[in-house]
């Protein structure tokens, strides 16, 4: 039998230009396939192995660490323009295994799996002893704050009625007693000021998403709601691309079932198309 040499991988430096190019393609792929939460940006390349691939090409096997940004996945802002969530805000890390095929100098992702986890309470306390930690998204105070904020937004809104897509972040602030929330919304076919039964409203076929930040404060038995929403430009109706790999993002934060199905963002626009903030 002819001697078949054992297949061995090529070792590259994690800071090598080739490795960084592969990692950037991986992060862009991950962000374009995220259905919930926030876009992530590359923080560190942990490991890289490059395998020869028959009949031609190479397979890059990468382990990368990412950090959550402040841009929601429905926000069309390119991730390069998004701010990284700071430690004092309770940062969230992503840990990803990715495989990419390089043929003719072009990378394509064949597999991606990520786990995300918030920074530890101890680490947050080290940099900011009084900063609020992330709260479970299904906490009753969080859900109430989102409902109150969305109602306040719709009450001030002359256009479409916006419905909740997902609660993406929440913090319970001890003093003054308040709840900080962030959530994604979508325009419906109802007019905000005419809505009597929100359950009858349907999301527009040409999706129009928004992202809201709100603080609901208890003040002498009264509730004060401050909400700011940014509404993004409409996303054209396009057939959903079939996955060419596997992306699985698991979060340790308590997940919340979105009341309406959130479609993944259509092909990400090249330029930010932000309209607003509205209220």
């Amino acid at each position: 039998a002819a001697h078949v040499p054992e297949m061995t991988y090529r070792q590259l430096s994690c800071d090598d230009l080739e490795t960084q190019q592969a990692a950037q393609v991986a992060v862009d792929y991950i962000n374009s396939h995220l259905l919930h939460g926030y876009k992530h940006t590359l923080n560190q390349i942990d490991q890289v192995k490059v395998w020869p691939r028959r009949p031609f090409g190479e397979v890059f096997e990468l382990e990368i660490d990412t950090l959550e940004t402040t841009c929601h996945v429905l926000d069309p802002t390119p991730v390069a323009n998004c701010t990284v969530r700071q430690l004092a805000e309770h940062a969230v890390e992503g840990d990803c295994d990715v495989r990419l095929l390089r043929q003719d100098g072009q990378f394509s992702v064949t597999f991606a799996k990520c786990d995300s986890s918030p920074d530890s309470a101890e680490d947050v306390r080290k940099v900011c002893p009084d900063c609020p930690l992330l709260a479970p998204l299904n906490d009753s105070r969080v859900v109430h704050a989102v409902e109150a904020a969305l109602a306040a937004f719709n009450a001030q809104n002359n256009g479409s009625y916006f419905q909740l897509v997902e609660i993406s972040r929440a913090q319970l602030v001890p003093l003054p007693v308040s709840t900080r929330v962030e959530f994604a919304v979508a325009a419906t076919d109802c007019v905000a000021i005419q809505v009597t039964d929100a359950a009858k409203c349907n999301m527009l076929p040409e999706k129009q998403y928004g992202f809201c930040k709100a603080t609901v404060t208890e003040n002498l038995g009264q509730e004060e709601v401050a909400v700011t929403c940014t509404v993004f430009q409409r996303q054209p109706v396009v057939p959903q691309p079939q996955p060419d790999g596997l992306v699985s993002i698991a979060s340790t934060s308590a997940p919340v079932d979105p009341p309406a199905s959130a479609s993944p963002p259509a092909s990400p626009p090249a330029a930010p198309m932000v309209v607003g903030p509205m209220v």
Binding site: Q20, T41, A91
Partner: peptide, 25 residues
């Protein structure tokens, strides 16, 4: 360190993990 005669000098291994761009969580 002084390499002894006949000893193969250790190859410089690629550095991993790479640089941290923001901060370590």
């Amino acid at each position: 360190p002084v390499a002894k005669p006949g000893m193969v000098a250790a190859a410089v291994l690629p550095s991993c993990p790479g640089r941290i761009r923001y901060f370590k969580v």
